[in-house]
Amino acid sequence: MFYIHCPYCGEHREEEEFHPKGQAHIARPEDPAACSDEEWGDYLFFRDNPRGIHHELWVHAVGCRKFFNVTRNTVTYEILETYKMGEQPSITAEYSDGRPAQDAADQASLREGVRA
């Protein structure tokens, strides 16, 4: 059972008030008609599905009904932060310059999340 902090209501509530809606920060292409099949298929269907830090959308379905973002560890299920739509995560599995946290020294932080 998760207790999730809704950044709009400002309260911790039980998981059952919320619905997960998949990976966050996926921008709809500006001009869908101009997309190649490759780009459009990737946008619709292909996901990161990481084992570890994941940024995901949730909706406070029986609360304020607003969508918001959650950074969560998909192995331990620990919720590291929740933040409003349009905001960026402060904890990521990559460094802010986009370099993946990959070498040996980064392994631990990859699991725990890198504070950007």
Binding site: M1, P20, G22, N49, R51, H54, E56, T74, V75, T76
Partner: peptide, 13 residues
């Protein structure tokens, strides 16, 4: 369970 997860367990709800 609706969320992504690699833990081999499910939620009580």
């Amino acid at each position: 369970d609706g969320y992504n997860g690699y833990g081999q367990r499910g939620s009580y709800s």
